[in-house]
Design a protein around this nucleic acid. Structure first.
Lengths: 204, 204
DNA sequence: GCGCTGAAGAATTCGTTGATCATTCAGACA
DNA sequence: TGTCTGAATGATCAACGAATTCTTCAGCGC
């Protein structure tokens, strides 16, 4: 089993090397296989399809992100500061990654088109940390009590959608995006401090 | 001059008829000209290019929207209700239009790609009404005083970006989008009532 | 002159064809 | 028997000439 995992990792790394350099479309299964000293067919014993490699790549990227999220969530800064750090980190990290390797954007586009549900997983994961921050904030009295932190988390994500894949949704510079992100957060945080009256049915 | 305006209108209407039915790409200048009993060349005396026809189309759509916005902005409902009505109207109106004539989405895409600045005009126009509502809200004491309603308006637009071209950014149903829109508005409005502390430099 | 046409030119799209690629799998190898 | 290869297959892509379309403009008719 360890062997199998190693090979998988090797394939993934070979693929990532090529993809960040040449792009998803310009990277072929044979090339990846060649880099690993195996045949293209053999890759299919480890990945069901090419797009699954892209997904694994994104999943790896996310895993690193989540670790940073976890740290931010459990820091002892006040909840509003953590909320800002949280989203600012996501923005910066993603922006820089795409800045550095522009081809990452292509991977994001392919996944958006071919694996639309994949992004929901990431959002759900993110919400775990968000809820943590919200609950801490409530406990500390920084945020007013709220009935449904899960729903509030979703709404915060919705309001900040624009900052998730910076280069995918807008052409602003990182500086401008950060300013705008914090501007939106100013309003959201004000709302959370004061207490939000939910007017919609949140049951699903 | 009236003649000229009439012809322009005639061309625009002929173009719209074809475009909403067959799409922007499948509609040719000759066809539009044919419908108007003139040559393709003559259209260029009224529109500088084909994409300008699409822009005029969108501008017409927006003009109708702005009228509704103006009415909502000047109604005597409380400011929060007007805010909701404002964005809910935009969402519904756009969603329904695209639902009815799916080809409108293609026009939006072409404009997004070829005339990226066009949308800023619409946002700026929208902000005029938004600021009106915010100022009324402050005057009535519903909203806490804010230093820069223009900036707040921008941030509100930013937070609600996702609901602007519903079918362009998400695959949710109209009902779900509405619920989500109102959920985000719940937080934003709570913030506005309580008072927003701006933490970013808003000068540009 | 003014308004318009229709042909000419430039740009784009289209359709075909050949090549490349993702994916499968029978069978070789160990 | 379990692992891997490499050829086979069908799908997708690239190339490129043909056709269509956008755009311009010389000149025609009023």
């Amino acid at each position: 089993m360890n062997d199998k995992t190693d090979t998988r990792t090797q394939i993934l790394e070979a693929a990532m090397n090529r993809i960040v350099h040449y792009g998803y479309g310009k990277t072929t299964m044979s090339e990846i296989a060649g880099d690993c000293g195996m045949s293209a067919g053999n890759i299919y014993r480890f990945f069901a399809s090419k797009i699954d490699i892209a997904e694994a790549m994104a999943r790896k990227f996310n895993t690193e992100l989540y670790q940073a999220y976890a740290e931010i969530a459990r820091s002892d800064d006040p909840a509003p500061a953590r909320l800002r750090a949280f989203f600012e980190y996501g923005l910066t990290h993603t922006y820089d990654a795409i800045e550095k390797d522009a081809k990452i954007l292509e991977v994001a586009e392919v996944l958006r088109d071919e694996r639309p549900l994949f992004f929901n997983e990431g959002l759900a994961q993110e919400r775990i940390y968000l809820m943590q921050i919200l609950e801490d904030g409530m406990e500390a009295g920084t945020f007013a009590p709220m009935q449904d932190p899960g729903f509030i988390s979703e709404m915060i994500q919705s309001a900040l959608m624009k900052f998730r894949f910076p280069q995918l949704y807008s052409l602003l510079t990182q500086e401008k995006l950060k300013r705008e992100l914090n501007g939106v957060l100013d309003i959201l945080i004000a709302g959370l401090k004061h207490g939000v009256e939910i007017t919609v049915e949140t049951k699903r």
